[in-house]
Amino acid sequence: MAKKRPVNQKKRQAALGKPLSVREKQVLRLISLGCSVKEAAAILKLAPSTVDNHKANAMRKLGANKVALVTRLVIKHKISNLSDRLTPLEKRRSGRKNDGWN
């Protein structure tokens, strides 16, 4: 008798390889630049829970479970590059000071 997989493992397998939505790409870019979910939400003018959902869906589609791996995949898939920085508008919206980071 075959074992049944848990439901979330089935979802994970089904999502793997699906293309990322535009919003998921935006969220991943900001996360890979070092923004927290709260900062990314302020930049995109979304609720933090919405940003967290986009991040989780994108990570499931990429098959990644760590933010460091997501950063590598963002660069590999050309969503962002190594010289990418937050724009002045994004910095203002995030509430970051001129701390030398990004």
Rank of each mutant, 00 (worst) to 15 (best):
L16Q: 07
G17V: 04
M1V: 02
I79E: 06
K45A: 06
K91Q: 13
P48F: 07
A47V: 04
R72G: 11
K3E: 15
K91H: 09
G63Y: 07
L30Y: 05
R85I: 11
K38P: 02
Q26R: 13
A41F: 06
A56R: 15
K97C: 10
L73E: 14
T50W: 14
G100K: 10
K11H: 08
A64D: 09
R85P: 06
N57C: 04
V74F: 00
A14Y: 01
R5D: 09
T71R: 13
A15T: 04
S32G: 11
L20Y: 03
A64V: 09
H77I: 00
A68R: 14
A47D: 12
L82N: 08
L69Q: 13
I75H: 03
G17R: 06
A56K: 12
C35L: 05
S94Y: 07
S36Q: 08
Q26V: 03
V74I: 06
T87I: 09
V7G: 01
A56W: 13
R85N: 14
C35S: 14
V74A: 03
P6C: 04
K4W: 03
K10Y: 09
N102D: 08
A15W: 01
D84L: 06
M1Y: 10
M1H: 07
R92S: 15
Q13E: 15
N102S: 01
N65H: 15
N98C: 12
W101S: 06
Q26M: 08
W101T: 10
A64N: 03
S49M: 09
G95V: 00
G34W: 02
P88A: 08
Q9L: 13
A14D: 02
G34R: 03
C35K: 09
K97M: 10
L30Q: 10
R23H: 09
D99I: 09
D99C: 05
A40C: 04
G95Y: 09
Q9R: 12
R60P: 10
K91Y: 05
K38S: 08
R85T: 14
R85Y: 10
K10D: 11
K78P: 01
